[in-house]
């Protein structure tokens, strides 16, 4: 199974720290709200996505697969 990124938007507080760890996957839109750009990133992104989940201050990111 491939990698799947899930952000609990009820928990996310738009800190944007994930954006620095994995800019290909996460972005803040013009209103400063988080957007997950790629929900099923390539396996080569695993380490960056894990890093993003680590640095989320409210631990809103889960990685499946």
């Amino acid at each position: 199974m491939g990698l799947k990124v899930v952000v609990d938007m009820n928990v996310c507080q738009d800190h944007g720290q994930c954006v620095f760890a994995a800019p290909e996957v996460f972005e803040l839109d013009d209103n400063g709200r988080l957007v997950v750009m790629v929900e099923e990133p390539d396996e080569s992104m695993r380490s960056a996505v894990e890093d993003a989940a680590d640095v989320c201050p409210v631990q809103a990111i889960t990685i499946e697969g």
Binding site: H15, G16, V19, L28, G32
Partner: peptide, 9 residues
Amino acid sequence: MLKVVNGYR
């Protein structure tokens, strides 16, 4: 101003 301050990183 989160996006702005993040830009200074």
